[in-house]
Structures are given as C-alpha cells and as structure tokens.
Design a protein around this nucleic acid. Structure first.
Length: 331
DNA sequence: TTGTGTTTTATTGCCTCC
DNA sequence: GGAGGCAATAAAACACAA
C-alpha cells in the first residue's frame, strides 16, 4: 500500500513525542498489523470472533498485551474472563488528532487508522461514533449555556421594564388625581361665578326690550346650567358640551358670543344651539388650558379635527387599561 | 476496602442512503 | 439489501470519598 508506509512513519514519530523516554513505546502501535492478523499485539483487543461477551472463552487473541506488564502477565490474561480494555493514552491522542481534522470517518481513513494503531477498523469506527456523541453533548451544553445566559439577560430587562411601567402607571394615577381635584375646585368657582353672572344678567334684562330679554333667559336656563357643571361632575353630557365648544369654535356665529348671534339673526332658534356660554372663545380656551395641563392636549394648539376620538385610531402608546383615562384626558 | 458516581468501550435496534 | 450513522443502553474500567 502506498500510503501505509508514510502513515506508519507519521504515527511512529507522533507516538514517540507522546511517550516518556523511560517508557517503552506501545509495541502494538509499531506492529501495523495487517487486517488478516487483527489481534496481534493490541493492548485493547476484544474478542471479535466470540461476540456475546461475558463467559466467552475466546480470549486468546485479545489477551496478548506486550505493553502493560510484559510477558509476566500473559498467564493472567489466559485465565481472565473477557474484559474491555481501554485504548492507551497515545492511541486516544492520535485518534483525537484525527478527529479534530475530520469528525467523519471514511472507509479508507478508517482502515488506515486501524492499521496504524493496531486496532480493528470496527474499533476505530466505534471510537469515532462515541466521540461524535460526546462532542454533540458538549455542543448541547454550550448551546444551553448560551441560551440560558441570553434568557437571564432578557428576563432582567423585562423585569426592569415592568418596574418602569408600574412607576409610570403610578405617576399617571397621581397626576390624574391632581387634575380631577383641580377640576372640581375650578368647577365650584365657575358655578359660583356663573350664578353671580346670571343674577347680573337678570338685573340687566329688566332694562331691555321684552323679546331679547325672553331669549336670553332661555339661554341662561338651558345652556348656562350645563356649562356650570362641565368641570365639576365630568358627566358625559358635560363632556360633549365642552367638546362642542371646540368643534364649533370656527363658526362665524360665535365669534362674538351669544349676543351678536342673536342680534344678527333675530331668530329664537339660535338660542338653543349648543354651547353658548357667557365666556368668549378665548376665555374658554384659557379655562381649558388651565384645567388640563398642556401635555394632556398635545394637539390643542394646532388646527386639528377633533371629531375623531383618539381611540378609533390608536392609544398614543398607552396600554388598553390606561386608555379610558387617556380618552377622558383628551377631551 | 468498598460503595458510588463517572467515563469509556461496545452492542443493539432503527433509520437513511445508495 | 447492505453499509453506515445515531440514540439508547449495557457493562467494564476508573476515580474517589468514607
């Protein structure tokens, strides 16, 4: 065989470097046993003829070990029941090197290795098979460690985010409380104010013409009371009233307040249009802004169509549970 | 020395590929 | 159908504490 010679010298030099100089080299490794004589000199030979293991007496071939204890042990081997013999360190080392180069074993390579190491090709194949299994287990362990580390990192990030979320939630709740308290306070003030305005108005009406006086009375009875409860109670009708303020703010009829509209049209139906407070538009805007902080109304300053409530499109990043709060604040 | 856990070598049965 | 690979498993060899 062309390659066997070089393989032989290769493994010889390899094994020389692996063995302490005081120790004799594993003689089996230099025998380069031909496949026709598979059991010559291997320290790790099992019986390949008498498969079935225990109790088998065919231990003659595998018992011949020149390496371990020399000839003195031959007798012992002859009388030993069949045992597994481990490969020598040098054999294992050589196999390891070979495995590092390529963990699959082609038939040619297997035969060559077996020949060089004085092992059965089947032993080499089994060794590679077991080695692959060990390698796979190691890889699995590595993968597990990597995944575990990744999991721990993600988990700690998640915990941080949860804490942050709770913190923000608490902050929103406390701010909401503040807004509500302030709203109530302003509501009472406004109610008192409107009541005094009402009294003033009635006094003023007494000096006016009868038709106007009648209409304005309707206004103060019909809508004024609504406005007075907008902030304090936060009922739905109050909210829609406040909202219609914004919706109709561009209407030319209201640029001047109730009186101008009435004077312009002379139509009693106008007095029942929604949202006719005693305040001017600017005053109302100011009130809104003072009641609700500007960050709750990020769009109020712009020309925005408020006919679409925010919940129809998005939550502005608020979770569903906070959405009600946001919706309320938006209005 | 012995009991016990781990490692290594080998077998078995199943599956895939040619 | 045979060869080879793989997972599961057996069993010997080995390591080590008590």
């Amino acid at each position: 065989m062309a390659g066997s010679g070089s393989a032989f010298s290769n493994i010889t030099s390899f094994l020389r470097t692996q063995q302490p100089s005081s120790q004799p080299l594993d003689s089996s490794l230099f025998l380069s046993a031909p496949s026709s004589a598979p059991f010559l000199g291997s320290r790790s030979m099992m019986s390949f003829e008498g498969e079935g293991g225990k109790g088998c007496n065919g231990s003659f071939f595998r018992a011949f070990d020149m390496d371990d204890n020399g000839d003195e042990c031959m007798d012992e081997y002859f009388h030993q029941p069949e045992k597994k013999r481990r490969l020598s360190a040098s054999q294992v080392q050589f196999l390891e090197k070979s495995f590092e180069e390529e963990n699959k074993l082609e038939p040619e390579r297997k035969t060559k290795l077996a020949k060089d190491l004085g092992l059965q090709p089947r032993q080499v194949a089994i060794w590679f098979q077991n080695r692959r299994a060990r390698w796979k287990n190691k890889q699995l362990e590595k993968d597990y460690e990597t995944l575990h580390a990744s999991f721990e990192s993600l988990k700690s990030n998640y915990d941080c985010l949860l804490k942050e979320k709770d913190k923000l939630k608490a902050e929103v709740a406390s701010l909401t409380e503040k807004v509500l308290a302030r709203g109530k306070q302003e509501g009472h003030m406004k109610q008192a104010e409107s009541e005094s305005e009402e009294t003033k108005g009635l006094l003023h009406l007494q000096e006016q013409e009868p038709p106007q006086r009648l209409l304005l009375q309707s206004v103060s009875e019909g809508e004024g009371s609504k406005v007075s409860s907008v902030v304090g109670g936060c009922k739905q009708e109050d909210i829609s009233s406040a909202r219609s303020d914004i919706l109709d703010s561009d209407s030319p009829h209201y640029t001047d307040g109730v009186h101008s509209a009435l004077l312009e049209h002379g139509d009693s139906s106008y007095v029942f249009e929604p949202d006719q407070s005693d305040m001017s538009q600017d005053e109302e805007d100011n009130l809104s802004k003072s009641l609700y902080p500007s960050y709750l109304f990020p769009k109020l300053e712009e020309d925005v169509d408020y006919s679409d409530p925010p919940e129809s499109s998005c939550n502005f990043g608020f979770p569903e549970e906070d959405h009600v709060l946001w919706t309320w604040a938006y209005y």
